[in-house]
Simulated scan of single mutants.
Amino acid sequence: MSLQPLFRRFHETIQLKQYEENAELRQKRDIILERLRDKLRPRTFEPFNQGSYAMGTGIKPIDRDYDIDIGIVFDLDHLKNDPVTVKGWVYEAVVGHTTSVEWRRPCITVNYQQGREPKYHVDLAVMARDSRGTLRLALGKQHSQADQREWQVDDRQGFIEAVKNRFNGEDGFQFRRVIRYLKRWKDEHFSNEGRAAPSGLSLTVAAYRWFAPKKSSTYQGVEYDDLAATTALVGAMRQNFQTTWDLTLGRSIHRLSLQFTHAPHDDVLARMTNQQMEEFYGRIEKLSGWLEDARKRQSAEPLQRAFGSDFPVS
């Protein structure tokens, strides 16, 4: 029995369409942008879509709290403008739009609720673009000291384009499907509170580095194997964990470093503690075991344990 039709059905269930195809998400984005244009006059800015929507790797969240990412780009000299001051322009423009607007170090977050339950949150990344076109992200909280305020060189636009162009045609579709499978696995097996889970960005960076299409030629044409592609990527992630000694825990632990491929070229997993990283490694091992079990038994039952009840068993 081929499990590929079940993977295809699972993907149709969890896939979140991009802004242009999703009227409700597009409406939320446009309302925020119109408010910014109105409140920021005479200042002007250029928005761009970022995150999973822009890359075509979004999934429907289990908790229904949709995360929308928008870059807000001002053409200005970063040497003459304080990053927290510029973020303040955006904060003042959106505060009061909903009952909860948060000032976070990397962005301004506008939260939407339905009843008492979160429904959307819109992350506004405030950026400066210099005369050469270099983008810098405004980092800093509302009352940060001078040494905690920074314009960080940021090429997220370059990464978005790189992901979109990493593979062509059906290879690219499989690449994005596998990223979505890993994101749903993350949502099923990690808390969404704090930094205990690997971010969706980190899983995308891992796929960008280690994913390889898995397909075979048959008399009917090319047949893709999403189970093999997912298994290979998870195996590559597992093999790239390094062993290091943790003085606090008094034992060796496994840790994965994953450098962002574009500026600022930082480790996208750096903020996970050693304990959180060890739990990540343990869950990767479990996932690897479920995938291998599914292959050996040609059974969907281990896949439902890995990816949740949305994965069909027949």
Rank of each mutant, 00 (worst) to 15 (best):
Q239A: 15
A228R: 10
D130L: 04
L303F: 04
K119L: 11
F311A: 07
S288E: 13
L124A: 03
Q239G: 15
H121Y: 05
P5S: 09
S100G: 04
K183T: 06
A128D: 02
S100D: 12
R251G: 08
R184F: 01
G115L: 01
A236D: 15
R105T: 13
Q152D: 06
H254P: 02
R251Y: 00
R41K: 13
I59C: 07
D155A: 10
G58P: 00
Q18E: 14
G115T: 04
K183D: 09
V95A: 07
Y224L: 07
R251F: 06
G140T: 01
I72C: 00
Y208P: 05
D65R: 09
E292C: 10
S144D: 13
L16I: 02
W210R: 10
Q15N: 12
A196D: 06
T248A: 14
T57N: 08
R29F: 04
D82N: 15
R180Y: 14
D38L: 01
L201F: 11
T85F: 12
R41Y: 05
R283C: 03
W290K: 10
W89I: 04
A146E: 12
S252C: 08
K141L: 09
C107E: 01
T248I: 12
R297N: 15
T248M: 11
E170N: 11
F45Y: 05
T261F: 11
R105F: 08
S131H: 12
K60A: 13
A228C: 09
G200Y: 07
I253T: 12
F241W: 09
M127G: 01
Q50P: 02
S191I: 05
G282W: 11
Y181I: 08
R26C: 12
L203V: 00
P118N: 02
D171M: 11
G51M: 03
I68V: 14
A196V: 08
P198L: 02
L256M: 06
R238S: 14
R29G: 03
R177P: 07
V122H: 04
Q242C: 08
P106R: 03
E285K: 12
F167G: 13
D130M: 07
L135T: 06
I14W: 10
Y91R: 04
R295S: 13
Q18R: 13
T230H: 02
L79I: 07
Y112E: 03
K164C: 02
H78Y: 13
F175D: 01
D171S: 14
Y112R: 05
Q298I: 10
E188N: 06
M237I: 15
E117M: 08
T261S: 14
A263L: 09
L3H: 07
E161Q: 15
A146F: 09
P42H: 08
E223T: 11
P106H: 03
W290I: 01
S199V: 03
H143A: 10
R283N: 11
F45N: 00
S191G: 08
S199L: 06
